[in-house]
């Protein structure tokens, strides 16, 4: 009976990346995963897709300028907002 927020039109697609995918995507960049934007473990979306601390989420959303835009967020604990 609980409402599935993932089906809401304003919630973009969130996917948990596997370790292989992470390695592939972040192979050629000059930053490491800890520098990614964060999403809290207890964020409603993290909870809904069952993400765990340390995982990386791939977020695919509509963009006014680019059409479709892909971002990544690191799932982090409560006290690590920064």
């Amino acid at each position: 009976m609980a409402f599935n927020i993932l089906n809401h039109s304003a919630v973009p697609k969130h996917e948990i990346l596997s370790d292989d995918e992470i390695e592939e995507i972040f192979a050629d960049v000059d930053y490491d995963i800890s520098q990614l934007p964060k999403i809290k473990v207890n964020d409603p979306v993290s909870k809904a897709i069952g993400a765990e601390e340390g995982q990386v989420l791939k977020i695919t959303r509509k963009s006014e300028t680019a059409g479709i835009f892909v971002t990544y967020r690191l799932v982090s604990g409560e006290n690590n907002q920064k």
């Binding site: 930053y31 520098q35 990614l36 300028t65 680019a66 971002t71």
Partner: peptide, 22 residues
């Protein structure tokens, strides 16, 4: 240089400027 927006701590704010890099 890679088109991303960073803050002083060098963490990423936006992966591509304005999302379309324009």
């Amino acid at each position: 240089a890679d088109g991303s927006i960073r803050n002083t701590a060098d963490t990423i704010i936006q992966f591509r400027y304005g999302e379309d890099g324009t």
